[in-house]
């Protein structure tokens, strides 16, 4: 966990210019990160390890006082999970924040900025697997 944090921390530092670049770009939609077949889009592969900003909604957190939440395309009350049987629906994203975050209302749109990380990763704390993450993240209300 610490090692991973350290790695993302250094990429965060080295990637500072790309963070600057991303800030100028438009905010991405969640779907832009996934290809039609459910894999990663070319854009996602391009942005891997770089800074980006994605818009969406914060799902109610599983844990209080944590640095992890799930970003969804539509507010949780509509429940994206009910619509699909897919193991990892293409409209959610795991977000690891750099600090303990304040919970946003599930119906407020937020912009999440951070470093994109692809590939499967099992959170040692929750035991859950994720495929796409934004790490070193922070969010603001859209």
């Amino acid at each position: 966990m610490h090692r991973r944090r350290f790695l993302t921390l250094t990429t965060g530092l080295l990637g500072a210019p790309s963070v600057l670049r991303a800030a100028e770009d438009d905010t991405l939609k969640l779907r832009a990160l996934y290809a039609k077949d459910g894999g990663f889009s070319d854009l996602a592969r391009d942005l891997e390890g770089k800074g980006l900003t994605v818009e969406g909604y914060m799902a109610p957190p599983l844990k209080a006082d944590s640095t992890f939440f799930v970003l969804t395309k539509i507010p949780m009350s509509v429940c994206p999970f009910c619509e699909t049987e897919a193991e990892w629906p293409d409209d959610i994203l795991a977000v690891y924040t750099r600090r303990v975050y304040k919970v946003a209302p599930f119906n407020r749109r937020i912009n999440v900025s951070g470093t994109l990380s692809l590939g499967s990763y099992r959170d040692p704390d929750t035991g859950f697997l994720s495929l796409v993450r934004i790490e070193q993240a922070r969010y603001s209300y859209a």
Partner: peptide, 12 residues
């Protein structure tokens, strides 16, 4: 068994 499942079970 998974993060997505946790949310869908809650809804279900």
């Amino acid at each position: 068994e998974s993060l997505g499942a946790t949310y869908s079970l809650q809804a279900e």
